[in-house]
Amino acid sequence: MQYEVVFAGFGGQGVMLIGQLLANAAMMQGKEACWMPSYGPEMRGGTANCTVVVSDEPIGSPVVPAPGAAVVMNRPSMDKFEPMLKPGGLLVVNSSLIDRKASRTDIDVIYVDANHLAEHTIKSPRSANMVALGAYIGRTNAATPEIVKEAMAKKMTNKARFLPANKAALDLGISVSREQE
């Protein structure tokens, strides 16, 4: 089984971080994993994305023209990656910042009010990325929530005080995606 997912948003939303958390978690689960960032000259507030491939087998191409899933945190990312998804793919939409519905009917869509939930329910506005990651994890088996939390603890050693909020944000995202099943 192979999972491919693009995490996309604007610089500062933490899309690179949630991609790394998934890749780390997959590795800790004994799977093959690969994280590839977009790189190049970008301005503050510009777009950023990374592709994560998780597989039971050695990973061939780290370049995925039609990913199985995309987590889009802002409108330009949705416009870019929705058309690229493979038929039957999964689109996680941050409905706090994206004012349109998905236009494709051949894909699964989860709408998650990530910024709103992070700010008002978790009281941690910057954990919106974790809510979105939770929504993805809740629908797929790319990595278990427990291992993602372990990866979080390992990765964020110098930000340990934010750990409880981030774990809660992940759980909230998972429950949102399960409600929409």
Partner: peptide, 10 residues
């Protein structure tokens, strides 16, 4: 190249 320099793998 970038696929080696920028990519993360175990």
């Amino acid at each position: 190249y970038g696929l080696i320099g920028q990519m993360m793998e175990p």
